[in-house]
Amino acid sequence: MAEKILFYTHPMSRGRIVRWMLEEVGTPYQAEIMQFGTTMKDPEYRAVNPMGKVPAIVHGKTVVTECAAICAYLADTFPEANLAPPVKERGDYYRWMFFAAGPLEASVTNRTLGVDIPTERQRMVGYGNYAEVIATLERAVGNNDYIGGYRFSAADVYVGSQIAWGLQFGTIEKRQAFVDYVARLSQRPAYRRATEIDDALVREMKAAS
């Protein structure tokens, strides 16, 4: 597809995940910086994402929201970037992408908000409990260089971002497997480019405020 991607984001949001993914893909994109509580809630943007949140992308006539979905879409749309394994080898790729979007994010959010799930109610919750989620994730990133095994993929962009933020803000326990995994990912040129762009935008916003 030749269309340039329109990328709605804010440098202090989950949009950082998608910028990293876009830099990995290497396709041209135009970033539109949205503001919390104002332009994100405008009717014009709600026509793109009714939730009034970022990130979102528009690619031709295709609109995609939700970070995991955007990462998966970009990996499939630009196969030359080699960010998704062959279909027959995608078991771990899908598993961990959606594990991070579901159990990991839900358990970390609830723990951060002080939501304690009673033991007798844990079977009603998709993730069970935080301790099991973290232990499962630790084994996954500790057994291989990448979340899906031997090769880097879009799942690493998404899962790695979740872990990196959790370590930074203290919402995920600082275990050596997590530290080592994030260190490997942060050496990627695309990660560094994306981080430099968003960090520069944050500095500009702070200087202007």
Score class of each variant (00 low, 15 high):
93 Y>A: 07
167 L>F: 05
96 W>P: 01
146 Y>C: 08
190 A>R: 08
31 A>D: 00
78 F>K: 07
197 I>G: 09
95 R>D: 06
120 E>P: 00
35 Q>K: 12
130 Y>K: 03
156 D>W: 02
4 K>Y: 07
142 G>M: 05
140 A>F: 01
172 I>K: 02
113 L>Y: 06
9 T>H: 04
118 P>E: 09
67 C>E: 08
120 E>C: 03
15 G>W: 00
128 G>N: 04
112 T>L: 12
32 E>M: 13
33 I>F: 05
108 V>R: 05
25 V>S: 02
61 K>D: 15
17 I>L: 11
96 W>T: 05
57 I>Y: 00
184 R>M: 09
151 R>A: 14
106 A>K: 07
185 L>N: 05
3 E>W: 04
195 T>R: 12
99 F>Q: 08
4 K>S: 11
75 A>R: 02
93 Y>C: 09
146 Y>L: 11
92 D>I: 02
91 G>K: 04
114 G>C: 06
94 Y>M: 08
3 E>P: 09
38 T>I: 13
161 S>P: 00
23 E>Y: 05
96 W>F: 09
168 Q>R: 11
8 Y>G: 03
71 C>K: 02
27 T>C: 13
170 G>C: 12
200 A>M: 09
139 R>K: 13
194 A>V: 06
12 M>P: 00
139 R>M: 12
194 A>S: 08
209 S>K: 13
56 A>R: 00
63 V>E: 02
204 E>M: 14
161 S>K: 09
35 Q>T: 14
102 G>E: 06
134 I>R: 03
141 V>N: 01
126 G>F: 08
191 Y>A: 12
157 V>D: 04
99 F>Y: 14
201 L>F: 10
4 K>H: 10
29 Y>T: 04
141 V>L: 04
209 S>Q: 12
82 N>M: 10
178 F>A: 05
104 L>C: 11
187 Q>R: 15
84 A>L: 05
19 R>P: 02
38 T>L: 10
148 G>S: 15
177 A>M: 09
204 E>Q: 15
45 Y>E: 11
87 V>S: 13
129 N>L: 03
185 L>C: 08
88 K>W: 10
70 I>Y: 01
52 G>P: 06
96 W>N: 07
109 T>P: 06
77 T>A: 15
126 G>Y: 03
66 E>K: 03
55 P>L: 01
81 A>F: 04
206 K>Q: 15
127 Y>E: 08
197 I>N: 07
190 A>Y: 04
142 G>S: 08
24 E>M: 08
160 G>L: 08
186 S>T: 11
150 Y>E: 15
152 F>L: 15
107 S>N: 04
98 F>V: 12
183 A>E: 13
23 E>N: 11
140 A>Y: 01
120 E>W: 02
52 G>K: 07
167 L>S: 10
182 V>P: 01
46 R>W: 04
205 M>N: 06
6 L>K: 09
22 L>K: 00
171 T>W: 01
66 E>Q: 06
63 V>I: 13
181 Y>T: 05
65 T>V: 14
25 V>P: 02
45 Y>C: 11
82 N>K: 15
18 V>S: 00
